[in-house]
Design a protein around this nucleic acid. Structure first.
Lengths: 334, 334
DNA sequence: CTGAAAGCGCTAACAT
DNA sequence: ATGTTAGCGCTTTCAG
């Protein structure tokens, strides 16, 4: 069961490999090869069950038609959906995707970058991990087409696609304030990531603008124990049902943990307490009561990041214009 | 910013590309190259920031060190976790993974296979879609190293790794019967996939063995509307709280839909009604009451499928021994 | 209109 | 101990 190459076909039809290549790659617009021969080549190619070797094509063209996708945590449903969208979008354009899970670990990100560069990927989409500035700087210097997703480091000139979490949380907070709430807390986890931090800033700014500085209350737990620690935070709130309280959550895992914690307290969400969640989750269907959640435009963001990357890959000159696209979140009510 | 090749280094140190290749690929055990030169090569390689081109290596070796992973539905948390495990396992062995989501669509599976073969993948792990027997047959004929995961077609000689859903559901059903339950229903969706069907068989067999043929009640809904239709089924059950009923679910999406449906009915799970779920889900944390769920050994299955594939890839002769590994599920109680 | 030859980066086999 | 050569499969000159 030997692989059949262009040479085998050339031998079979009695032409050169060049002629066969031209025909099979559809570059015979200008009739370099006669119609008769074209047909014969096509026929024997089919007959011999020819399949082009993309590796060989890549080696000669210098383009692997492969994109590397580095994701911080592929089991997070948000990133899982993003990865799916990106993959399907790139596939349409003839690109394959190698996805690597960096597990929020800068060292694993370094390894992954090495692996992908060795494989001559044409570009990279990266959800950087915390403390990954080193690797990102390397990538920037290397001039490889690169777009960051969800997070970025302002000190480097990269192109970035993100949801505007600042604005979303700012608006959510303001809305609560206008409803008359004052006791508004922000639940988050400890991280330097600007995606999360800017959501926090949205909260702080809204509170300050409303002169509610004294009410600002940010509970920040360890990333590795979000569930337990968030639940502990909630358990520790006294008289929770009579506080006219609102809890704003900085991320999907914090949201789920918060909902779980509140469930234990037997308070009615939307009546005794307001909650504003980040990202959509299947568990919302199992919550009694009503609340607002902030949805990132996952599909649009995925499409955007791919189109940006394609622009970079296809731009001949290396002006390398960078841009940061902030996309608006949507509010939903459950 | 040209890529530096082995030739550049050869020129720099004044040796042949072959010498450089031997040193850089660590094949200098037998001192082909002098110690002095070895060091010089290593040094200039580092200095010139050399990185090997795996594409070129692949072309010449005929091994791409890449595995294709076809998954029927990557957004299903079960497969998401499987994909993550497989990827990380293969990465340890120096393989990259190209994951393609076939969306339970046989045609997309065909396309994916073409793409992956063109890229010369060394092997394939496939979660076949329903009605995908054609493509699987092609793959079998092609002799490319292949292992199926979660589902298979008995008519083809493939190696398969699956959870023993038959046994799990058989035991679960039997357990319920021993508890004195008779009114045991099986909720599933319409599909020819043997993974799901064999779970159903486990239910049927257990019921028959207990002479409960008359109680056999299988509700089978459309795959594309599991949520609505399952909920409708549950809504249609009269006097649900006094039936001493048990519902066994055939899959994770059916389980979640069932739990949701039951929630609407305000019956107490574990008291008024028993439920047995398939796969673990985050939503279980939000369910009041207690129930049993069946967990597939995801990690072990992932490791197994990788090791099987590696065996095939590394086996020189083409005896191509096929095997079906059925792994036991675990029962958990919530 | 067609074919020959070179070369992408690498390594295995064959010289020196 | 080191170099040379050929070739993996493909495309792109360039020369008929």
């Amino acid at each position: 069961m030997k692989r059949v190459s262009i040479k085998d076909i050339a031998d079979a039809v009695g032409l050169s490999t060049a002629a066969v290549s031209i025909v099979l790659s559809g570059k015979n617009k200008n009739r370099r090869v006669s119609k008769k021969m074209t047909e014969k080549i096509l026929a024997t190619a089919k007959e011999m069950n020819y399949h082009p070797n993309l590796l060989a094509q890549s080696l000669q063209s210098g383009k692997s038609k492969t994109i590397g996708l580095l994701v911080a945590d592929i089991c997070n449903p948000f990133f899982a959906l993003v990865a799916t969208n990106i993959q399907s979008e790139l596939q349409k354009q003839g690109y394959a995707v190698i996805i690597i899970n960096t597990e929020e670990n800068a060292q694993r990100m370094d390894e992954a970058i090495l692996i992908l560069r060795a494989r001559q990927v044409d570009g990279l989409i990266v959800v950087p991990t915390a403390y990954g500035e080193q690797s990102i700087q390397e990538l920037v210097k290397s001039k490889i087409p690169l777009v960051l997703f969800d997070r970025y480091f302002p000190q480097f000139e990269t192109s970035n696609v993100l949801a505007n979490g600042y604005k979303a949380v700012y608006e959510a907070t303001t809305q609560e304030i206008q409803k008359g709430k004052k006791n508004i807390k922000f639940f988050t986890y400890k991280t330097p990531l600007n995606s999360i931090r800017s959501r926090e800033q949205g909260y702080i700014t809204a509170m300050r603008e409303a002169k509610l500085d004294d009410y600002i209350d940010i509970r920040s737990v360890s990333y590795y124990h979000i569930d337990e620690e968030i639940e502990k935070e909630i358990a520790s709130i006294e008289d929770i049902e009579n506080q006219q309280m609102c809890i704003i959550c900085s991320s999907n895992n914090v949201s789920v943990a918060t909902l779980k914690g509140i469930k234990e307290r037997k308070v009615s969400i939307g009546k005794d307490i307001d909650v504003i969640c980040f990202d959509k989750s299947e568990v919302y269907n199992f919550i009694d009561g009503h609340f607002t959640y902030i949805e990132q435009p996952i599909y649009d963001m995925s499409v955007k990041v791919v189109s940006l990357l394609m622009e970079k890959i296809n731009s001949t000159d290396d002006d390398n214009i960078t841009s940061t696209t902030q996309m608006s979140c949507k509010f939903s009510y459950k």
